[in-house]
């Protein structure tokens, strides 16, 4: 009936114990042994006699099984009628999971009213559900990373991203398309970020995106390829004068103050331009490198200006032959 009970005589000798208590000491016959040799009463402390236990009548006792496994038990004590010792009713409490493994307990080792089996059930059921949830989370995380890798958009500005730009550029080169390519690098953007914070920086990038879209046609590609670096690809437009006009307009508009929390954000841009006439054997990488060289020529000239690539730039020789414009000079 009570598989977890112990009946003690007044001198502390175990008279009788439940079947499950007996399993705690498989090699010893508990009846006849001194209770305090087999169980340590840890709470309340300093209880080492049956009368000490009786003083705690109705209180919760914490016991430790002295069998080398240190299993903890909860117990309550009641005196047996006629002064015939003490009856202890015990339970594993939270140690039930380990106890079941340590003593190979079965469902019938627990009283029908004991919730231990329900608790085990709940632990296993919740663990199984949690494992499924974790698997789902891992898959969703993987899907998110994959989606981001496959995306062609820059989430902050809504412009195309580096991946999209690489795709389009490679396609144009392989198809022998004519196009103009501009590399736009913001000037003084770091200053905005440092003095007004990243929120201001983000706002500026969004304003820049709008200007770039305004100043280009629908069929052109506008991509943000780095923090403050943009690439514009003008489909079938190789007219240097027209490209320079666009570059000048972009710089002028980007120099208009962008208000952020009542303060103006002041930036500008340096631009490097190159064109591909579609006939020459040139790689996408080389085109980007040429635009980059032109861009750095603009930076060298004191920023806020545009430069068109010419072979002279490759050798970093004299820049006299450059067709260039400067908004600040």
């Amino acid at each position: 009936m009570m598989p977890m009970h112990i009946w003690l005589s007044t001198d502390g000798i175990i008279r009788q114990c439940g079947a499950t208590v007996a399993k705690l000491f498989p090699d010893r016959e508990l009846p006849g042994l001194l209770f305090f040799d087999c169980f340590l009463v840890r709470r309340p402390c300093d209880v080492g006699t049956v009368s000490g236990i009786l003083d705690q009548q109705g209180e919760k006792l914490h016991l430790v099984v002295q069998n080398g496994r240190n299993t903890t038990l909860k117990a309550v004590a009641v005196p047996v009628d006629g002064g015939d010792g003490v009856l202890l009713d015990m339970s594993f409490g939270i140690s039930v999971v380990d106890a079941i493994r340590d003593y190979d307990l079965t469902i019938s080792d627990f009283a029908a009213t004991d919730l231990a089996v329900e608790m085990l059930y709940l632990i296993e059921a919740k663990s199984a559900a949690m494992a499924e949830s974790r698997k789902l989370n891992t898959r969703l995380q993987g899907a998110k990373v994959a989606a981001e890798e496959q995306a062609f958009s820059d989430t902050l500005t809504g412009l195309k991203n580096r991946r999209a730009m690489d795709h389009v550029l490679t396609h144009f080169v392989e198809a022998g398309e004519k196009f103009g390519l501009m590399q736009v690098d913001l000037d003084y953007f770091k200053r905005v970020n440092d003095t007004l914070g990243h929120a201001a920086g983000d706002l500026v990038l969004q304003a820049v995106a709008k200007v770039l879209l305004d100043e280009t046609r629908k069929e052109d590609l506008v991509a943000r390829i780095g923090g403050d670096e943009f690439v514009l690809i003008f489909h079938r437009m190789t007219d240097i004068d027209k490209l320079n006009e666009i570059a000048a307009r972009i710089i002028r508009r980007l120099e208009e103050p962008i208000p952020y929390c009542g303060k103006p954000c002041l930036i500008s841009a340096s631009i490097g331009t190159t064109v591909s006439d579609g006939c020459q054997k040139i790689t996408a990488d080389k085109i980007l490198m040429n635009a980059d060289l032109a861009l750095y020529a603009s930076k060298d000239k004191g920023r806020a200006c545009y430069t068109v690539f010419s072979e002279d730039l490759s050798s970093k020789g004299d820049e006299g032959d450059l067709r260039e414009g400067s908004m600040s000079g």
Binding site: V97, L105, V117, E124, A128
Partner: peptide, 9 residues
């Protein structure tokens, strides 16, 4: 069948 589940559960 044992009440004690597989290790790790």
């Amino acid at each position: 069948f044992r009440l004690a589940g597989p290790v790790g559960v």
